[in-house]
Design a protein around this nucleic acid. Structure first.
Lengths: 155, 155
DNA sequence: AGGTTTTATGCAGGATTATGCATAATTATG
DNA sequence: CATAATTATGCATAATCCTGCATAAAACCT
């Protein structure tokens, strides 16, 4: 029975609580909590969650890579965006209530040179192009975000 | 081949662009765009997206119910939350970068009497209880949010 | 380098989800 | 109300997803 979601949620918590240095350690922790999975699944979880091996205070330890987490968020973006409008000089994106900041943040992080910046309110955000000729480019870009499924890198 | 996600995204856009008053109209639009589905699927999409029939300027038209959209977001919350900490008097939730506002907003909307309010920054939010005895209640509550799957109301 | 430990992945089976068809339930209309 | 139009859903099937097992690949360690 797939409890992938619950399990991965717990993994994120555990990783941010303890200092885990190999998959088996975490595996034991999870088993103790009733998640009966194998190392193979764990490995895939790491890949999906964007867990990376990093040096922290001398020794290696697994942690969430913020950039990878960004990739995961990409899957949500399309869900949060309701519509895109624009005029001559800027693009306005409407989102579900309370999500505009998150979407704006995501777009910021993509570092598109055509995008000078974003401003997010509650359910609306403004995307400001570096020059007005780029408005269409930006629209295409955001629309692509909405439909592409950047998920699963696991293979 | 299931393109549910893409399709539902497009549905949200179409609904917020045109004034759609019955499922068949929308069905035709979608077909024109290459989404070859039947009315049955469309009906289920509406249910999942939380599309409601509303009176707008005299005539009926389908639109997204903001409350329902909230339900949808619930599915994402667990994904965005990384960890929960607390002291005697308040609860601190860490989230993926840029998502704290969204999570705070979501929690606000739940109108729990134990929660006096929230403050969201970039990747951290504060949940303020009405009295410190309720800290544990709030923690439980948020943890439940993280693992429950409130999804699918269809059928 | 050789051997050992740790991590990733091809493959297959079982579970779950998505969807169409047919039809029931509901809603609108005369 | 009766009938037509619209929308919802039971059932069956195809498409996907999740996971373990076995094993390959990579990282580590003398």
């Amino acid at each position: 029975m797939p409890n992938k979601l619950k399990r991965q949620g717990r993994i994120k918590e555990l990783l941010s609580t303890y200092s885990i240095s190999n998959q088996d350690d975490l595996l034991r922790l999870l088993k103790k909590e009733g998640f009966a999975i194998t190392q193979a699944t764990m490995s895939r979880d790491f890949a999906e969650l964007g867990v990376v091996r990093a040096f922290v205070q001398g020794n290696v330890c697994y942690m969430l890579d913020p950039d990878e987490s960004g990739n995961q968020i990409a899957k949500l973006i399309g869900f949060e965006i309701l519509s895109i409008q624009h005029n001559e000089t800027m693009v306005v994106v409407r989102t579900l209530a309370g999500r505009a900041q998150g979407v704006a943040h995501f777009i910021d992080r993509l570092n598109k040179e055509e995008i000078m910046g974003t401003i997010g309110g509650d359910d609306t955000l403004l995307v400001i192009p570096n020059k007005k000729e780029n408005v269409p480019v930006i629209i295409d870009f955001i629309k692509k975000l909405m439909t592409e499924n950047p998920g699963r890198k696991v293979k």
